[in-house]
Simulated scan of single mutants.
Amino acid sequence: MAAFNAYRVSSEPQWNLKYVQPIGTEQESIEIEHQLGAQFEKHRTEQNGEIFSDLDAAAPGM
């Protein structure tokens, strides 16, 4: 954080990290991407591959 606050005119730091989130391994990230991809694949349109969620298929304009 010191690097982000180094050039501040004010003595009060602008950047203050309040939370620390653990970062997993690269393999864990890849697995999560696969799981998210599988979920989004269920909502992909056949024509152009757009992804819609929370829409009723019978909604007007669809």
Rank of each mutant, 00 (worst) to 15 (best):
S11I: 02
Y19G: 04
S11H: 02
G24L: 01
G49C: 08
N5A: 00
N48M: 08
E12K: 07
Q14T: 08
G24F: 02
G61R: 06
Q21H: 14
L17F: 11
Q39N: 09
F40Y: 15
V9F: 00
R44Y: 04
D54L: 06
Q14L: 13
H34E: 12
A58N: 12
H43E: 04
T45N: 13
A59V: 08
E26T: 12
R8S: 07
R44H: 01
G37N: 11
P22I: 01
I51W: 06
G37K: 12
A3E: 14
E26L: 12
K42Q: 09
E31A: 07
A38I: 06
V20H: 05
A6D: 07
S53P: 04
L36H: 06
H43R: 14
I32K: 11
E33R: 09
Q14M: 06
A59L: 02
Q39S: 11
R44I: 04
I51K: 05
Q47I: 07
K42N: 11
E31F: 10
A6N: 08
K18W: 05
K42D: 04
Q27K: 08
T25V: 00
I30Q: 06
D56H: 14
E50L: 09
L36W: 09
M1P: 03
G24M: 02
K42R: 12
G37C: 03
L17P: 10
Q27F: 09
Q14A: 11
S11K: 03
E12I: 12
P13W: 00
T45E: 15
W15Q: 07
M62E: 10
I32S: 08
L36T: 05
L55N: 05
E28V: 06
E33Y: 10
A58W: 04
E33T: 04
I30N: 14
E50F: 12
Q47P: 05
G49H: 11
H34D: 10
A6Y: 08
S53R: 13
Q27P: 00
S10D: 03
A38S: 06
R44M: 03
S53K: 12
A58H: 15
E28R: 10
Q39Y: 12
Q35A: 15
G49N: 00
M62L: 14
F40M: 13
P60R: 09
D54P: 00
N16Q: 11
H34K: 11
S29V: 12
A3L: 08
P22E: 09
L55I: 15
R44T: 06
A57L: 09
A2R: 08
I30L: 06
E28Q: 11
E26R: 11
Q47T: 08
N5P: 00
W15P: 01
P60G: 02
A58L: 15
E26W: 09
R8I: 04
A59D: 08
Q47N: 15
A59Q: 14
N16K: 11
G49L: 03
A3I: 04
D54W: 10
Y7L: 04
E12L: 00
S53G: 10
Q39H: 05
A59I: 05
V9R: 03
E28G: 10
A58I: 05
N5D: 04
H34R: 13
A38F: 01
A38V: 08
A57D: 15
Q14D: 13
F52M: 09
N5L: 02
